[in-house]
Amino acid sequence: MTDARQPGKEGGAVAPPDPWDPLVRVTHWLIALAVLLNAVLDEGGSALHVWVGWMVLAVLAIRLLWGVIGPAEARFSAFPPAPRAALRHMKALLRGRPREHRSHNPAGALMVYALWACLALISVTGLVMTDARSPVTIAEEKAAVAAGDWSVLASADDRAENGEIKEIAEEVHEVLANLLLLLAAVHVAGVAVESRALGRNLLRPMLTGSRRG
């Protein structure tokens, strides 16, 4: 009696890690939470919104570092952007016979890069909009204004000179935020479809892993 559920012994010759390594899991869910918070729940421009944005930058930074020095499946080299392979994968998926891959499948890999690009650009445009003031500073200034000290608004006037750039940044920030939500929805749908086609729950490796013990 052998264990039929041992990693790498089911499906194709190679399969994504089950579970994914802890850093990939932690960063994945923090980003998901951050997107949910900043796109849906909190108010744009609020101190909380800026806090969350800064955290996204940090999470993105550590994940990108992990993409260089992390374990094999978490590295960029395991899932290079390959549009043609992604197309092939989508076709195979439509026929109901997707192949297993050692990391993200080629279509999933494109999604990962698209999401990262969106997150990075949204964060950077957010920094432009707030003059890269830290959330602590923003909260302090808001508290000062609320307490009747309007002097901070004078310094805000000094910063208003590159208003045009800020307007563009704001436009980009909003368009990309909507695109990000759209991509996230496609990502979730993709996981559902692929799970069904592979006959294997792809969500579980991102949570705790499928194996017992």
Binding site: P22, L23, V26, T27, L30, M55, A58, V59, I62
Partner: peptide
Amino acid sequence: LAVTVVLQTM
């Protein structure tokens, strides 16, 4: 360790 590293990065 992963959680700590992410917190440290923040």
